[in-house]
Amino acid sequence: MIDVERLEKHYGSFVAVDDVSFTAAPGEIFGLLGPNGAGKSTTIGCISGLLEPTAGRVRVLGKDVVVERRAAREQLGVVPQEMALYEDLSATENLRFWGAAYGLRGSTLTTRVRDVLATTGLADRAKEPVSQYSGGMKRRINFGCAIVHRPKVVLLDEPTVGVDPQSRVRLFEMVKTLVADGTTVLYTTHYMEEAEQLCDRLAIIDRGKLIANGTLEELRGQVGERDLLQLTGHFDAAAVEQALGAVDDVEVVQVEPDALRLALRDASSRLPALFDALTTAGSEIRQTTLTEPSLETLFIKLTGKELRE
């Protein structure tokens, strides 16, 4: 269970995390979706104790991470965005060290290390120094080091960036195994397909602010059943608004001199009529992109920009 309450983190006058609140429950994957620089890692840092919150409160299993540091940390496993491994040591040695750092000893430690090597699929290369691993293997062992001690809460910060498909599948399986065991998982990503595929509940973060929060269904409901139509070319805002006002059930999401974004039902069958209306209004259309309803469209609708910029 993670409880984030009105969290703020400032760097000087820059506000990296601004009044963020959410709750992640046991046995669920809570996704934090946002573009680069949105404040995902900063949020994770405040939960893991790496960063001191400027304001607000974070509790892990009811323990305040600032006041009851140690108690909060013992139940926490952190998979940092950047690799955090001893490159000169083997997978086994890394796992043993981090397991020991979380208080495991003796046969328990040995068993857990063996288990993690099996789930990460690294058992047959466990003795090699990590420096010889591929990027995907490093990601897996980086994950493994955070879960040797079977934490009740796991924070994953963009664990699939730059990962081969095979490792990605393996990482997803590992995450799903964790939640099946009742672990609370906070999963940050800037890939919306990942968030859609993996997360039970989601918050969308942009420029430090939460702009949406709910289950996948709730968020999809916010977009409605409408497609997103993106046009580039030449547009006159006033003329476009006027022309489309006459067309049923079309929402102008955004209009700029060279770009137009519309939300509408059954876009594909209504394209010819739309184009007619637009060209009559003096617009010039160079390119069109049609996107079905998704988190991506929600994000664009909420922020006026694409997720991967």
Binding site: R70, V78, A84, Y86, Y102, G103
Partner: peptide, 13 residues
């Protein structure tokens, strides 16, 4: 640079 210091910060020890 290996990131192990940061990991250690969030370990109980």
């Amino acid at each position: 640079s290996m990131g192990t210091l940061r990991r250690a910060v969030s370990a109980p020890g």
